[in-house]
Design a protein around this nucleic acid. Structure first.
Lengths: 248, 248
DNA sequence: CGAAAATTTGACTACAATCAAACCGAGTGG
DNA sequence: CCACTCGGTTTGATTGTAGTCAAATTTTCG
């Protein structure tokens, strides 16, 4: 079993030895109500592999589904392949967030998951998690909630795609990332986008050119300072007004 | 407890007495692996109210979440209210399908659910279902699968909205309804749409006018015969070609 | 039947897509 | 160290699809 001495003395989340109890992200990815003794049982089933590098696949669409994953550092994008072979970005996953739950229905992943930068994940074997859920009801509940969150997030994106202009979509996405950064104690106003303009556009149902133009416009209006992937939000209220939608 | 004598002799799904074991839809809404003795326990927790009429709300957004619902007859639409007060249709629910799972995350419904015609539902109190899941692992698994299905369906809609033209979206939606009808032994080529053109457009991210124009065009090309809400698919292959996407 | 709602059709417009080209920064190799 | 390519990004000019506005027509239902 993972040594608590090691894990308590390290803070780097690339380090595969950090156990759930000591993970700085556990308030995001774990149910509050899991108790200390139960944490050990959870720790036992979670696997922490070596980090993925930029471009590495965590899993491919059509791979048999065995596990869901928690991001501990870095960024993952999820994509579906459309019939005509194009890719559709269905989500970006930041530290503390869970991905892979689309595979449960058919026991096969419907998305592929790709690291956008050096990324470390915890693998949670789903069958073992299911067994454990039977013994720890709060864990069962937590997984229901995680999946429900994914549903509401997807529905928010549906609304965004269906009702909002290019500017509103880009603004909403930046606010979403800002909020999620803030939740893990990072700056809400200054951050680095891990994804390319193409990925942003793909996710938002826009072309690269449109994303670029919108960012330029926001810069010209002194709402943002954009330096390639570095984004600084200069006028948060203006950005919120531009988004016309709650933060995702 | 519900009498099996009554339920075995009736076939009408508006009838609130039909138990799960005798419901013609149980292969769609229940896990195969729930056994007969377990079915009774499920039946005990499921509540079958009187039918909803057209326009009735099954629940409102922001209502406390207590239950998920299975449609037994009729059609329900789910909507979210956007910040600017517009509604976004997030789904149509046909007999055998489950709705309401968006409420689990926050213990509050994020969608409203409205009957599009006279509709009967089974109410499944979620807390009791959770308890029962601990005793019947296949039920737990089934609920995970239902939620995962909802996720993949939402992601398919995201892809449709983000990548497909008006014609492709309308064609895909008709194919989806066709497939779901066929699954419950109804005609895949001749059916009645319960929703208005406005609802279709709202769901597909299009205006009413565009939906109407696309339907007219399909009619002119002898792909469809449209008589107000009655749709007949005259050329299924052409419709599939027009959709450029798998059936949802 | 008559009023209100829903649908269809037409003319015009606007927003984002497309096509095209320039630009930038990071590497690589001469 | 420079010249080079190669991705990714930005900017510009033009086009096309679906949105908007408007009006006619059909359907629904009280």
């Amino acid at each position: 079993m993972t040594s608590n001495i090691i894990s308590k003395t390290t803070r780097c989340h690339h380090n595969p030895q950090v156990s759930c109890g000591d993970c700085r992200l556990n308030s995001i990815c774990l149910p509050i109500s899991v108790h200390v003794d139960e944490l050990d049982r959870l720790d036992e089933i979670i696997q922490r592999g070596r980090p993925l590098h930029k471009g590495d696949y965590l899993y491919h669409a059509n791979d048999p589904f065995t596990s869901v994953y928690a991001v501990r550092s870095g960024t993952i994008k999820s994509i579906r392949i459309t019939n005509d072979g194009e890719e559709q970005v269905t989500g970006f996953h930041l530290p503390g967030e869970i991905l892979g739950m689309d595979g449960i229905a058919q026991n096969v992943h419907t998305n592929s998951a790709i690291a956008l930068e050096t990324t470390a994940v915890c693998e949670i074997p789903f069958a073992r998690m299911e067994e454990l859920s039977i013994k720890i009801p709060s864990l069962q509940r937590h997984f229901f909630q995680l999946m429900s969150q994914e549903i509401t997030a997807d529905q928010q994106l549906i609304t965004l795609l269906s009702k909002n202009s290019a500017e509103e979509r880009v603004a909403s996405m930046l606010l979403s990332i800002s909020t999620r950064n803030h939740r893990r104690q990072l700056s809400a106003t200054l951050f680095r986008l891990a994804m390319s303009r193409a990925d942003m556009g793909n996710y938002l149902g826009l072309t690269v050119e449109t994303v670029s133009r919108v960012l330029s416009r926001f810069q010209k209006q002194d709402i943002l300072a954009v330096d390639k992937k570095e984004i600084e939000i200069l006028d948060m209220n203006a950005l919120k007004r531009a988004a016309k939608t709650e933060t995702c």
